[in-house]
């Protein structure tokens, strides 16, 4: 197992935080979906409920779309950054031409 870095540069850090957002989103969606029905079942059972649920749904679709787009961009930025770092390191030190592997980048623990 590769040793994980303790701190990350900007691009990777940004991507990790977006990853955190992707983890929070389902929890948030579940709460918004279930809590109104537990609290005020009568208000969300009819026309008002239709508006609320479809609006929530549309919001979730947009949120997933935006999140995925941002994550893909952040991933591309991370790849670029690590390539740039590798290009910087490689000429100076022949031994350090290794590029960080994707698996190591995916490691969830580093902050």
């Amino acid at each position: 197992m590769p040793d994980r870095p303790l701190f990350l540069e900007r691009a990777s850090f940004h991507r990790r935080r977006l990853g955190d957002a992707a983890r929070v989103l389902p929890v948030l969606a579940t709460l918004l979906l279930l809590l109104p029905v537990w609290w005020v079942p009568r208000s969300v059972s009819y026309a008002g409920g239709a508006v609320w649920f479809f609006a929530l749904w549309a919001g979730l679709i947009v949120a997933i779309w935006a999140l995925h787009r941002a994550l893909l961009r952040a991933e591309a930025a991370t790849v670029r950054a690590s390539e740039a770092a590798a290009a910087q390191v490689a000429p100076r030190d022949g031994l350090a031409g290794r590029r960080p592997s994707g698996e190591a980048e995916r490691g969830p623990d580093a902050l």
């Binding site: 992707a22 389902p26 969606a29 979906l33 649920f53 949120a63 997933i64 999140l67 994550l71």
Partner: peptide, 13 residues
């Protein structure tokens, strides 16, 4: 809506 919730976790799940 149940599947939609699952798909909000598409990225990591």
């Amino acid at each position: 809506l149940g599947p939609t919730i699952v798909f909000t976790g598409a990225w990591w799940g």
